[in-house]
Simulated assay, not measured.
Amino acid sequence: MKILLLCAKAFETMEFSVFVDVMGWAHDDFQCDIEVETCGFNKIVTSTFGIPITVDRLIDDIRPEEYDALAIPGGFEEYGFYDEAYDEKTLKLIRDFDSLNKPIATVCVAAFSLAKSGVLKGRNATTYHLRGGYKQKELAKFGVNVINEPIVVDRNIITSYCPQTVPDVAFRLLEMLTSEEKMKLVKEAMGY
């Protein structure tokens, strides 16, 4: 199995790294046939706090049928996250994964990419909830049924509140791809 980890400009490193770690533990310690492949608009993508990441593939070269799931970390608007998170290439990628009914896991404001693509219209989701819930109100404007919960799963799509939720999002994705039993083994081994 292969997970595509999309790194839009200004992604948050914490929201990125947990997917790598959880799936790495599952692969190396529990013989789960899972690998994570990163992609971005450029070979080097700079995170919100200035950490550069070299990605495996460019978004133009991605074929959704070669992957089993898509994961998208959120990022900071003031560093330009939405420049690529709202780009038509990102939106098409999301629509393609959803049309194939493949799991899509997002953290925090990455839910806005899903909403902008149209795949969340009429569906349940959540996003950043602090500071008066203003981001949740913005998400609702896309026709999303916003649920004020840390993690919301609607069929193949996982959305979440904020960086605190990242481990649980990654574990939910692992469960979707393997089993509840495998997920619990990895979770316990990692101290969660």
Rank of each mutant, 00 (worst) to 15 (best):
A105D: 03
Y82P: 11
G75W: 09
K92G: 02
F97I: 04
K121N: 07
G80M: 13
L120K: 02
A115R: 06
G132P: 05
K116A: 08
G132I: 12
R95N: 12
F76I: 07
L114E: 02
D98S: 01
E77F: 03
S117D: 06
Y82Q: 06
E88C: 00
Y79P: 00
E138I: 11
V119I: 07
D98L: 06
A115V: 06
A85C: 07
E138C: 07
D87S: 10
Y79S: 02
E138Y: 11
G133W: 09
G80S: 04
V144Y: 09
G132Y: 11
F81N: 12
K135W: 12
F142S: 11
I104P: 10
K102F: 09
G75P: 12
T106Q: 11
A85V: 05
E138P: 04
G75H: 02
G75D: 05
K116D: 04
A85W: 14
G132F: 14
L120I: 08
Y134K: 09
A115D: 02
K121T: 08
H129P: 13
I94M: 04
V119D: 00
Y134H: 13
Y82G: 03
E138H: 14
G133Y: 04
L93W: 08
N101W: 01
I94Q: 03
K135R: 08
L93G: 10
N101E: 05
F76R: 03
G74E: 05
K137D: 14
K137S: 09
N124G: 00
A115W: 02
F76P: 00
Y82R: 12
A110R: 05
A140S: 14
I104K: 07
C108I: 12
K121F: 07
K89S: 15
E78L: 15
T126M: 11
S117Y: 02
D87I: 14
A110L: 08
N101A: 01
K121Y: 04
Y82H: 14
G74N: 02
R95H: 06
G118Q: 06
K141L: 07
A111V: 13
A125Q: 11
A111Y: 15
I104R: 04
F76E: 04
G132V: 13
F81I: 15
G133P: 15
Y79D: 03
